[in-house]
Write a protein that binds this DNA or RNA. Structure first.
Length: 392
DNA sequence: TCTGGGGTCCTAGGACCC
DNA sequence: TCTGGGGTCCTAGGACCC
């Protein structure tokens, strides 16, 4: 099983782990005894490894179709409309990824994203389809049958809340939703649910998004490895999170003028506290030093002595493209160029010699608050020191 | 007695996703 | 003792404009 950040919860399980009763999302400490009793193996999240393997898979998949949207670390949509035999393409995808990268993938084929997700779900869970399921090739009766067998809660876009509301109106399956009155559903809930309904009918309402569009909000947030009481330690953490967020910001070629800092105690604590504060800058920037300073300023306003803090986060709002931004009328002349050069040098050094090669002293050195990752697998594909040894 | 019409922008909060 | 992180979109309501 794979654990969330800070070795907190179970976020992914092998079939063997499921078989011995490890539930999705349970806190690690509640199943840790199974390691000794049943041979359960826990791994900390390893984003360097997953990110690298994901990039390889996505690059490969992109070669199979004219259009691609990378939707998450392990999913993408391909537009196969113009291809002569989508099912064959699906099989080719599966065998190529397996051969070149050693990873199993499943393919769902349908006229809309919502139906494609649903089809993928079937490809994954029904053995006899061998990992490729084509909804569009089914007769109308078969399609209805498939939708009747699918709980509405499993439909993409229907979460817990909507599921409850829909059930109270007698809508239990994907089929029930598809047959409902679209305008009425739109009025009762939202256009989002109406779109989902239309997509189930095969009417494409959610287009393929362009890859590489800049984010509108950037967040860096972590739980601490142990509880934190002192402002000085929170300042270190907030400096580090702001630094991370700045790296993301510059990678997107964006700037921000709004820095929000949040802190909170554990939600399970008796003496709980949570607050946040926004600092608005006079002009948008991507300069780590300016943004860290703003973050610390916000933190000092939000900090209250006497609480046992569990988590802090830094988020940038009002994120906009760097190109064409409004520059400052009052910044000292030459400051922009200087900052530009400094950030370039910083990013170049950290990219070449590894994150944290050059950092602000405000982040601290020892970092006793750093999150836990006590069961981490090696970064096999992204760190020279961790390259698998075939023979020694 | 009777007080317009047509917009935009912003924010907080809720819902969803992986 | 111990309970994740990072996003998106939509809506309602307030404030404001001419």
């Amino acid at each position: 099983m794979v654990l969330s950040n800070n070795d907190g919860c179970v976020v992914s399980r092998s079939n063997e782990a499921k078989d011995i009763g490890v539930a999705m999302g349970v806190p690690y400490f509640k199943v840790a005894h199974l390691e000794k009793q049943k041979g359960l193996i826990a791994r900390s999240s390893n984003y360097a490894l997953y990110g690298d393997m994901s990039a390889r898979v996505m690059k490969l998949l992109g070669e199979f179709a004219p259009g691609q949207e990378v939707y998450s670390i392990d999913e993408c949509f391909l537009s196969v409309g113009g291809l002569p035999n989508p099912v064959q393409t699906g099989r080719d995808i599966k065998s190529t990824v397996k051969q070149l990268l050693g990873l199993p993938v499943c393919v769902g084929i349908a006229p809309t994203k919502t139906l494609a997700k649903l089809s993928n779900n079937i490809a994954k869970s029904t053995q006899r389809f061998n990992g490729v399921f084509d909804y569009s090739a089914l007769s109308e009766e078969k399609q209805a049958q498939v939708l009747k067998a699918m709980a509405v809660s499993k439909v993409w876009g229907i979460g817990r809340n909507l599921n409850e509301k829909l059930q109270s109106r007698g809508i239990y399956t994907a089929y029930d939703l598809r047959q409902a009155d679209a305008d009425q559903i739109g009025k009762l809930y939202s256009v989002v649910v109406k779109r989902t309904l239309l997509e189930l009918r095969g009417e494409a309402c959610i287009g393929l998004e362009h890859v590489g569009e800049a984010r509108k909000q950037i967040l860096s947030s972590r739980s601490f490895g142990r509880n934190v009481f002192e402002l000085s330690e929170l300042e270190e953490a907030v400096s580090q999170y702001a630094t991370r967020a700045c790296e993301k910001l510059r990678r997107d070629c964006s700037v921000t003028s709004e820095v929000q800092v949040s802190v909170r105690t554990s939600a399970y604590s008796d003496n709980s506290f949570a607050d946040s504060k926004v600092i608005v800058l006079p002009y948008a920037t991507d300069d780590t030093m300016i943004l860290v300073k703003a973050a610390i300023q916000a933190l000092r306003q939000v900090y209250q002595k006497g609480y046992s803090y569990q988590k802090a986060s830094v988020s940038f709002g009002k994120v906009q493209p760097k190109e064409g931004r409004q520059i400052s009328l009052f910044a000292p002349s030459g400051a922009e160029e200087k900052s530009e050069k400094m950030m370039k040098a910083l990013d170049a050094a950290n990219s070449r010699w590894g994150r944290g090669t050059i950092f602000l002293a405000a982040e601290g050195i020892e970092k006793p608050w750093q999150m836990k990752a006590e069961h981490k697998s090696p970064a096999y594909t992204s760190d020279w020191n961790d390259i698998p040894r075939v023979r020694a």
